[in-house]
Amino acid sequence: MNPFDLTGRKAAVTGGNGGIGLGMARGLARAGADVAILGRNPDKTRAAAEAIAAEFHVRAVPILADLGVAAQCASAAEQAAEALGGLDILINNAGINIRRLPQEMTEEQWRDVLEVNLTGVFLLTKAAYPFLKAGGKGKVILIGSMTSIFGSSFAPAYAATKGAVVQLAKSLALAWAPDHIQVNAILPGWYDTDLTYKAREEIAGLHERVLARIPQGRWGKPEDIAGTAVWLASAASDYVTGIAVPVDGGYSAML
């Protein structure tokens, strides 16, 4: 048997309608999983689900949810499990960033980032727990960042949440090991997406500085992260839990 085969498995991917979230959702579907795409934009979320279903011939359903709203986190997990007939895999990828120097960031902006990137991640993962436990072999993947390792002068709230996500993954891994649920984190490096395009517009010289540090000599593409997501979602990683894996072209290995 192929330990990377996800046929018959049921996955939910938050922020799966674009960028690296879509890259991971496509990777799971290519490996055979049915996928629920969770997102805030109805047209974009529906289009992503339809495209995945058509290309990979799996069941793909759109679920509308704002993970900055606590009540919607619980309902999103329930909707995904109901639509797919259970839930085996959760990739908690959705996040926001507000780029401000610490002294310029308001309390409201700070709280907005924490609500989505940390509180929303916790609440949705907690809401998914009964379904993951019921299946007997649950997989949770939380998405951190290079700022889980390094600080960021222009994104202090984002960096704080992404550091906390790694500790949350470790804590959930310990708590849920008896339930046969593995919890791990992926730390993406710099990927060529709409979000980083905006960052490159706002921060002079960012593109060149990042590129100069990546040993592989290029920014990542969404499909570059799919293989790691499939590995952590599959039986191939059944003895792996509580780790954080950089997928960054070697960025974090550089001095």
Rank of each mutant, 00 (worst) to 15 (best):
G205A: 06
V113Y: 08
N184I: 07
S171H: 13
T241F: 02
L206C: 06
N2V: 02
R213K: 15
A253H: 05
T196A: 00
A128S: 12
G23Q: 03
A60S: 14
A12R: 05
I20K: 05
S237N: 08
P156H: 04
R111V: 14
L206K: 08
M105N: 05
G68V: 00
R46N: 14
R26W: 09
L187P: 05
A229H: 02
T45N: 10
M1H: 12
N117C: 01
F4Y: 15
V240W: 10
L168A: 04
Q182C: 14
E202T: 09
L124Y: 12
L255V: 12
V58Y: 08
P215F: 14
L187V: 10
G95L: 00
A204K: 15
S148I: 01
I96Q: 11
E201G: 09
S171P: 05
S152I: 00
I89Y: 12
K139M: 09
V245H: 00
T147R: 07
L90T: 00
P130A: 03
Q79H: 14
E50Y: 06
N117V: 00
A160I: 01
L118D: 07
A12M: 15
I141R: 00
R9S: 07
I214F: 03
A31H: 07
Q182M: 13
T193S: 06
T228A: 15
A48C: 05
S171F: 10
A94M: 08
K126N: 10
I37L: 13
L142N: 14
L64M: 15
L114M: 15
A53D: 07
A94Y: 09
I149H: 13
M254Q: 15
M24F: 04
P178N: 05
D192F: 06
G144D: 09
S152N: 15
N41C: 03
